[in-house]
Design a protein around this nucleic acid. Sequence first.
DNA 1: TCATTTTCTTATCATTTGATAACGTTTTGG
DNA 2: CCAAAACGTTATCAAATGATAAGAAAATGA
Lengths: 213, 213
Amino acid sequence: MARQTPARALSYVFTFSKIVTMHPIRTQIHRFLPITDEAWLLMEPHIEERSLVKNSLLVQEGKLVRELGLVLEGNFRQYYTRDGEEKTTYFFFENHFIGGYISCISGQPSLLNIEALTDARVAMFPYAVLQSLYNQNHEWERFGRMLAEYLGLGLEERMVDLLLLTAEERYIKLLHSTKVKILERIPQHYIANYLGITPVSLSRIRAQMAKKS
Amino acid sequence: MARQTPARALSYVFTFSKIVTMHPIRTQIHRFLPITDEAWLLMEPHIEERSLVKNSLLVQEGKLVRELGLVLEGNFRQYYTRDGEEKTTYFFFENHFIGGYISCISGQPSLLNIEALTDARVAMFPYAVLQSLYNQNHEWERFGRMLAEYLGLGLEERMVDLLLLTAEERYIKLLHSTKVKILERIPQHYIANYLGITPVSLSRIRAQMAKKS
DNA sequence: TCATTTTCTTATCATTTGATAACGTTTTGG
DNA sequence: CCAAAACGTTATCAAATGATAAGAAAATGA
């Protein structure tokens, strides 16, 4: 019995060390469901880290997207081009899954661009690999379902907010949300796009709110 | 050889008869992926048909949703209550999957209501059954992923339209879409809600469009 | 059938939003 | 460090939208 104590301690250290050094992608996957080492090892060899300089594109309009991944460092914005103008519709931060998910699952060329707002690092894997994991492994398929469901929940809430709330209400909600990180260091006109209004209009809303308080 | 002809013909008739009598839920599932008889038989015993009279609620605000299903007959609208007003955000027709999908996957009480706009019939099954099928059967899990992905694609497009298009553009797009069925026999103020504008505003847009052409 | 309710349109007025431009500030990139 | 670009605010005017009310048309239900 006495010999078990050190063994347990060692095991604990080992486990702990595994947790703190766990690959960031696996950490995020575990937010949905814990996957086994075996399942993880099917994915790990295909992950490739990449650095992007500020203003470069991770996903480009018109091109079929072939990979997904995770933001390791930096901020990104997603935008559509319309009437020659860029309209920002989403932001990605550290530990967000990123990539042209829609292009991947629809198999159609991307309608949107994803641009690095800062110098950034990402960890990407081919979507074909994920698809193959879906096919060969129930556990991965489950992750795929949960990821899609999670993204759907976010989209539904966003859509309802656009339908039901005023621009000011959406801005206030953003200020109180965990996404308040969006506000840090990100140009305000991108946030205005995200809220569905013009930068001038957002400026007015802010001025009004300042007057009230 | 001569004897094979009738046999083939019989087989054809049998197959054809199987197709035309296939359960509507299975038919819709097959739009995503063909499931085996074996997988289907795990679901079929739990399906229950139900009739609803006009204006009755299939899903009620504040209640946890425990089942999903398919519209067999009739039209439904989904609405949120805000400031004492009902805001219609979606419609369901024959062969649409229906139910408080969001409440099911989030495990939270529904924020929305689903109301029969006509006398209607639905085929429902417990979400717990689907969850259990997800767990025990890879094929069903795959269906779950594809369903979630499909719903996500629709939500993304709707969100982008709300952000990028004007109310008139959204209305024109609706007129040209396959969802034009929405326009038939559905009160226009519900459609206005769906577009994110007031009924009065939609009426103006229609008047302007009529003037132009 | 007929009265009631719902629906749609139109008009009016107030409010919000967009478009544009000007201006000062901040950030960026040599 | 400095010039250029990007950014945020404000003002002005036009356009779109919302709120409300009134009235006509259509649908509903007894």
